[in-house]
Design a protein around this nucleic acid. Sequence first.
DNA 1: AATATTTACGCAATCGTTGTCGGCAACGTT
DNA 2: AACGTTGCCGACAACGATTGCGTAAATATT
Lengths: 340, 340
Amino acid sequence: MEIATIKDIAKALNLSTSTVSRALRGSYEINPETKRIVLECAEKLNYRPNPIALSLKENRSRAIGVVVPEIDNPFFSQAINGIESIAYNRGYHVVIFQSHESYDREVVNIQHLASRRVDGVLISLSGQTTHVEHLKELHSKGMPIVFFDRFSDEIHTHKVVADNYQGAFDGTEHLIKSGKKYIAHLAASPTLSITRERISGYRAALEKYGIPYNEDFVKYCNFSIEDMEKIIDELLSQPILPDAIFTVSDRLAMACLKILKQRNIRIPEDMALMGFSNLKVAELLSPSFTSVIQPALEMGQRAAELLLDIVEKKSKNPVYQTVKLPTELIIRDSTKTVAD
Amino acid sequence: MEIATIKDIAKALNLSTSTVSRALRGSYEINPETKRIVLECAEKLNYRPNPIALSLKENRSRAIGVVVPEIDNPFFSQAINGIESIAYNRGYHVVIFQSHESYDREVVNIQHLASRRVDGVLISLSGQTTHVEHLKELHSKGMPIVFFDRFSDEIHTHKVVADNYQGAFDGTEHLIKSGKKYIAHLAASPTLSITRERISGYRAALEKYGIPYNEDFVKYCNFSIEDMEKIIDELLSQPILPDAIFTVSDRLAMACLKILKQRNIRIPEDMALMGFSNLKVAELLSPSFTSVIQPALEMGQRAAELLLDIVEKKSKNPVYQTVKLPTELIIRDSTKTVAD
DNA sequence: AATATTTACGCAATCGTTGTCGGCAACGTT
DNA sequence: AACGTTGCCGACAACGATTGCGTAAATATT
């Protein structure tokens, strides 16, 4: 049982393919009676237009590509959820790519996307990515690109980000107000925009409360488990021990919590702990985990909307915007003051 | 700057498209010198074959569709991770669909997949799905389908599942050996194969140790938060209170833990708790969470391999197999006996 | 020298669909 | 009666790439 095409209908009804095509799309210049017959036949044969043929003709694929560092990461899976929901409603399909935080794989992914002729690209850069020539080239050839979360300033397009500065500021301020003075900041890759923004927020809060900035309290982690452990241990063997750690990713938060527990460091008495996190289980951790929450789902939705607006819009010169979504500080036990 | 086609090369070199095509694929009947010139020109124009044109010609898309209930669920995001890695290596792309546990959306997804002309489908059924005519029809038309995790017996094809029976048996046995006698089982949708298998394992373990099966201790939950709360509360207000709860999904485990904490029920003293879970943070929960772990990533990989084998194989009659992967019981604090 | 073979390439069809053009009837208009 | 208009439909080309077939010229064979 093969899939019916417009030719099969034409043959069955002894009509031309042009007539069948027009009848199916309800063209005014087709006899209503003919239309009826064609539609009936199409129904009987379970005809479905071949999207590949349409793609070839219209030079569009009705698919968007999404490049994320890792699907299996709560932030990104929530974002993809949002992307998929918007794309679905607007008749687009979502093709997924993972960079696994590798620059090389990101480049390969972009090449695949380009040759795949997707209609647009949503991307959150890998932690290793320091230059974006691969994206620049694609963008200069007219491929709509929208960044979410991790962007590059070198490409002029829509960006959807969390308010990382404010989030880090709020989190740090909360720690300060809880009486903490030696606040460590466990950052992600220094090449990422989010890292820089969060450190800015962190420093601004310190400054506001007259706390000196200590370079040794800021550590950059890549994403391997071993390195994270080493770096966290490093932090814990400083001459001046921090009394709070602000981690800026789910993986860092988890690793940090685990190591502190192993070292029998009491949280929050000896060490307050908070994260930039999208873990749904944050409140169930021991102790429950104070977090700056990013609106991951909404970020995915907004990014997808902006992308599809470009894809579908005639305007050659869209006004590119950077959408900054507010974060939310949720205070739980891991930063409770002893007095509480 | 448009994308170069084979015609552009032909025009530039004053050759026919056939010659260019053959030169690019290294046909023996093209002059080596001509080949060189063509390849050089292709390089210069940054030529990439149009996969859509190829798809139309070869009647294949080099894409596989994946239908999961929810991306934002650790089990499925890990499985997709596995799927993507295999597909990537074999030159296929992954198109994602979510059913959101809705039968209707699952049907629509399948229709999309069918009309999208994907080369194969990987699916884990929605919790609402009770019949699979939509899949049967697709399968009967020759679409390769492989189930993972949640399957239907009505379709004869490859299946990749965790050993749910043994996993539930092991978990239940562990609870029994910890001295628990009133073990509740919080199951997912009764229509799912995994639910039935896990209940079988649960019952078998009870039987082995001569513990009577109590129907009131088995509760079925759909996936809405409110319902879960209601059902768990129901369980907690039985004449005979359970002394252990075995939950069979991440979401149930989380809801259960939260509610028990709210009710100030001590874990594991008053109530042992364990899950069928893929939560990476299980060991960081309070108390750390005993779990039967499913090899989600590996399940995705195996399923993708089996699917692509069918897709690429000439054999019309593959020997369909059901791959059953072992689960792993990880014992942590939420089921510790008081004596420990 | 006449024929056979090889080399190297072009033509045209194909995949499924749509858009452009053109044409044949059957009407209405003058 | 001659012309214009409208309704309805088919032939053809095109999207990008592959491929079977044909063929001219160059070379080899007898």
